[in-house]
């Protein structure tokens, strides 16, 4: 080999390095960066801020304590269970934090620490990771966790568990509005229900806070408006009908909407994309189902409130709703070729 050829050979890789390396990939080569899965999760946390504020005002430090217990447990559970499945641990996606927060906000203020912890572990472990992790679960993880602790520790989550007679906080000494209605036939004023100066689970008391956060979620389309619209329509229709057939003095459709976990559930729980239908029509049908079940449980069962069970039951129906609401493509259905 001549010196010149050697020189050339040495220079050749250099010249190549200077030229940009071109990549090959399937299209499209443009993508919207306005939304990522992680951003969706943080949107939910951001939308929970008004709920947190209302809860802090009403329940003081209990809110913070439950949130810390549930969110930390959820992160621990996520790490533990995904490690057991020998899968990459993806706590950075924020989904465990959302599950933890939703669970915390659906617990009574005075629930002991292990209620939140067990609930979170069941929510993440049995509610989500066992199914294959994020996106694979059938049931809303937070509601599954809550249902578990509700049955495991009925004393801490039943209607009476909400009442703490010797509590320093005024709100805690009274029964929840739906319990007083069911057991004593007493009504709660619309304004306390709207602002959240009543007793109840941590995140559910203030209709105003839920509406604010819910509006943000719907505007960002992190939550699909069709679901809360379906829930509210069904509850309003059934409550309206009942008011017309068998009026309860002082109890209106608005009372029905603003009390209990209805708005919190409509905006934050039922809108979990993983466990709700895919198409706009399916989402509305799902919402109607949740709303109807809530009214059924509220009026005909022993429980004062039914959002949790309504969501879980409808979760099970989602695959069916998806089947029923396969959209017709523009241009109609492809005709089978005659062979």
């Amino acid at each position: 080999m001549t010196d010149e050829a050697k020189k050339e050979e040495q220079q050749a890789p250099k010249a190549e390095a200077a030229a940009p390396v071109l990549h090959v990939a399937p299209g499209p080569h443009a993508f919207s960066t306005s939304l990522t899965t992680r951003r969706m999760m943080f949107d939910v946390l951001l939308a929970l801020v008004p709920v947190f504020a209302a809860s802090l005002w009403q329940f003081r430090l209990y809110t913070v304590i439950q949130l810390v217990i549930c969110m930390v447990s959820a992160l621990l559970a996520e790490t533990l269970f995904t490690a057991m499945r020998k899968k990459p641990i993806l706590i950075r996606d924020g989904s465990a934090l959302v599950t933890g927060a939703i669970l915390a906000f659906s617990l009574p203020a005075k629930a002991p620490w292990y209620v939140g912890a067990v609930g979170s572990f069941v929510a993440i472990g049995i509610g989500k990771v066992i199914f294959g992790g994020l996106g694979q679960n059938i049931f809303n993880p937070a509601m599954l966790g809550r249902a578990f602790v509700m049955i495991a520790f009925p004393a801490f989550l039943g209607a009476t568990a909400y009442v703490v007679p010797d509590a320093a906080i005024d709100g805690l000494s009274r029964a929840t509005p739906l319990t007083t209605l069911k057991q004593l036939g007493q009504n709660t004023g619309l304004l306390p229900l709207f602002l959240g100066t009543t007793n109840g689970s941590l995140g559910e008391t203030s209709a105003l806070a839920c509406l604010l956060g819910g509006a943000y979620l719907c505007l960002r389309r992190t939550a699909s408006w069709e679901i809360p619209a379906g829930i509210v329509s069904a509850v309003a229709a059934i409550a309206g009908l009942m008011q017309w057939l068998a009026p309860v003095a002082g109890w209106t459709v608005l009372h029905e909407l603003f009390s209990g976990a209805l708005l919190f559930g409509a905006f934050y729980i039922a809108t979990d994309p993983v466990t709700s239908p895919l198409t706009p029509r399916g989402k509305f049908v799902f919402g109607l189902g949740v709303g109807a079940l809530v009214m059924l449980i509220r009026k005909l069962s022993g429980y004062p409130e039914g959002v949790m069970f309504a969501v879980l039951i409808m979760n099970a129906v989602v695959p069916l709703i998806n089947q029923w609401t396969i959209p017709t493509p523009v241009g109609g259905v492809v005709l089978e070729k005659k062979s």
Binding site: D93, G135, R221, S224, T279, G331
Partner: peptide, 19 residues
């Protein structure tokens, strides 16, 4: 790439109304 969370955004934009 992360897991599909079935958010339905693809359904919302498909000009042929597919899933």
């Amino acid at each position: 790439e992360t897991a599909c969370v079935r958010c339905g955004r693809c359904v919302d934009v498909c000009p042929l109304h597919l899933v």
